[in-house]
């Protein structure tokens, strides 16, 4: 199974449904923090150009806020594609984006448990 197939399987998304309107990137609240934007994730996965995505910090900038999923006129669910690419990256050996030993310096007294749980779910396998 190649990377594209793996990502399609993890996401359950049919990228062919995309009509290239760009509404996902028009609606993304974290657009400016991303090198590759939601519509590019969909397009690049469809065209099999996945390596640049796997190496990009953009993987860790998606907020999973589902704005793109809610507003996509073709029901493509870009957030699920981004999540699948991220999983494909962090499931590799030693590829965890956040390591437990680095966490203490990043938290403060108010940090909710929920944040740590979410971060480990999103950034580590």
């Amino acid at each position: 199974m190649d990377r594209k197939e793996e990502i399609l399987l993890i996401s359950g998304v049919n990228v062919r449904k995309c009509m290239r309107c760009g509404k996902c990137s028009g609606t993304c609240p974290n657009y400016d923090e991303m090198e590759y934007h939601p519509h590019q994730f969909v397009y690049m996965v469809e065209s099999g150009n996945i390596e640049p995505l796997l190496k990009s910090e953009s993987l860790y900038k998606c907020l999973s806020c589902f704005a793109c999923v809610e507003r996509c006129p073709r029901d493509v669910e870009p957030a699920k594609i981004i999540e699948a690419v991220r999983l494909s990256a962090i499931r590799q050996k030693g590829a965890n984006h956040i390591k437990a030993e680095n966490v203490p310096e990043l938290i403060d007294e108010d940090t909710p448990q929920q944040l740590l749980m979410s971060v480990f779910r999103k950034y580590s396998k």
């Binding site: 974290n30 860790y60 966490v103 940090t111 944040l115 979410s118």
Partner: peptide
């Protein structure tokens, strides 16, 4: 109804 930044607040 726009996201607060969610779990990004640990490392960004």
């Amino acid at each position: 109804n726009e996201c607060c930044g969610g779990y990004l607040s640990l490392d960004d």
